[in-house]
């Protein structure tokens, strides 16, 4: 069908087998495509129009699958990488256009929300993820899939090859880790209050 070598499939396979160099190479190969797709969505953004990163990555996957012969079996692994790329796309985009309308991070405790814009929160989390990734690479992928890509628990568990409950536990641990970091004084001295404890009865 296609005479070009299925490079992405190869790279995904190497990456899956623990070849760190493959990840960098995958980024190189995939980034322009996904970024272009993402950018086209951002450009078309209007009032009240919401982004759909998973759909977007899915479409990215389909395009690449068609063009470069990526195996359907590699979809889960593809999502792990794509989530990381999407995180970068969104963050790059946010930095470039600070007025971008991110949706509300509903339920964020008042103390946090009052002090920080949503964008700022996203940027802060992005920064913390580097630290988290060094210690817990899987947990970092969980945050990318759940927070940046908006996957359901089932989808993320499937992509990472975890049981649903293990995924949920990892997600909880990741949120807690980030929450503690965000609320500690290291991030931005003076700006962060401890989360209000008044509603906590137990």
């Amino acid at each position: 069908m296609d005479e070009r070598p299925p490079e992405i499939t190869q790279l995904l396979k190497q990456w899956r087998c623990g070849d760190a160099g493959a990840e960098a190479r995958l980024f190189e190969v995939l980034m322009p495509d996904l970024h272009r797709i993402a950018a086209s969505y951002f450009r078309g953004e209007r009032e009240g129009h919401t982004l759909q990163p998973t759909a977007l990555v899915n479409e990215g996957f389909l395009r690449l699958a068609a063009a470069k012969g990526v195996d359907w079996q590699d979809r889960g692994h593809f999502f792990v990488i794509a989530a990381r790329i999407m995180r970068r796309c969104l963050i790059d985009h946010a930095r470039a256009r600070p007025e971008v309308q991110f949706l509300s991070l509903e339920g964020l405790p008042e103390g946090v929300l009052g002090q920080r814009g949503k964008l700022e929160t996203a940027l802060a989390i992005d920064g913390l993820l580097e630290e988290m990734g060094a210690e817990f690479p899987q947990r970092c992928s969980v945050v990318e899939m759940k927070f940046f890509l908006g996957m359901t628990d089932e989808e993320a568990a499937d992509a990472l090859g975890l049981s649903l409950h293990t995924l949920q536990r990892e997600w909880y641990r990741a949120r807690r880790w980030l929450f503690e970091k965000l609320n500690s004084d290291e991030v931005k001295p003076g700006q962060w209050n401890k989360a209000p404890n008044t509603t906590n009865a137990s």
Binding site: Q52, P109, I125, K146, G150, Y172, A195, S202
Partner: peptide
């Protein structure tokens, strides 16, 4: 411990940065 933290965290990061999308569409 988890329940205490869940209460403290509220819906922290529960909502994705951008809307909940659907796969397979």
């Amino acid at each position: 411990d988890s329940v205490e933290w869940e209460v403290r965290m509220g819906g922290f990061l529960r909502e994705p940065l951008v809307t909940m999308p659907e796969m397979d569409r």
